[in-house]
Computed example of a mutant assay.
Amino acid sequence: MSFCIDHLNRYVSDIDKFITFYNEVLGYELLDKGFKANGKAYAILKGFGHELFISEKDDFMPENSNFRHIGYSIENADSLLESLRDKGYADKECRIVVKQFSRQFYLKDPDGFEIDFIQWTDKEGFYENLKMKKRL
């Protein structure tokens, strides 16, 4: 039996801001948008191999989440960061963090949720390093 992520489902403060953000930053396609039976707006966005279901809710508080971030594997951190700066989603303070096994940067969505854009330089080395640390 094999598994893969089918969808992510989260509450957001403003459906339209998120549709724009996820389309322009991550290339998500809008599949559906409307209102649920409770009158709250929702949208379904198609990502790469998964979907993102978003909906508004009363008393939305983004800081109440225990979900740390979503990491997206990317091919070229430099070109993506430059593109996001050109579109106004990343400022000059946003920097690529160079680590032993990756190059990555972090960006927050309209509600402050963190997204990790990671360009792996040696993912196998990363996992091997974790195994070695466990043995020590």
Rank of each mutant, 00 (worst) to 15 (best):
K99Q: 13
P110H: 03
F117I: 14
L80P: 03
K133V: 15
Y42A: 05
E24A: 04
F126P: 13
P62C: 04
I5T: 07
L136W: 02
N38I: 11
D116P: 00
K36D: 00
G39D: 04
R10F: 09
F105D: 02
G112M: 14
I74W: 08
L84P: 12
Y11G: 02
S79Q: 09
R68G: 00
T20C: 01
E124N: 13
E56N: 13
K33A: 04
V98D: 11
I96H: 05
M1K: 14
S2E: 05
S13F: 00
E114N: 12
G71S: 05
I118N: 07
F18T: 04
E124I: 14
L84N: 08
M61N: 15
G34V: 10
L130K: 15
N66S: 05
K108L: 01
F35D: 08
V12Y: 00
D6G: 11
L130Y: 12
D58Y: 06
A77W: 03
M132C: 03
Y106R: 13
F35N: 10
L45F: 04
T121G: 08
R68E: 02
Y89A: 07
S13C: 06
Q100W: 02
D14G: 08
W120C: 03
G34C: 10
F18E: 07
I115V: 01
F3E: 09
L31A: 04
F117P: 00
I15C: 00
W120G: 10
D116Q: 04
L130N: 12
A90E: 05
K40N: 04
D86H: 13
S102D: 05
I19V: 15
K133F: 06
F126A: 14
E93V: 06
S2K: 15
C4M: 08
F18H: 15
G71P: 01
Y106T: 09
M132V: 15
I5C: 02
E56K: 09
G88P: 02
K123S: 10
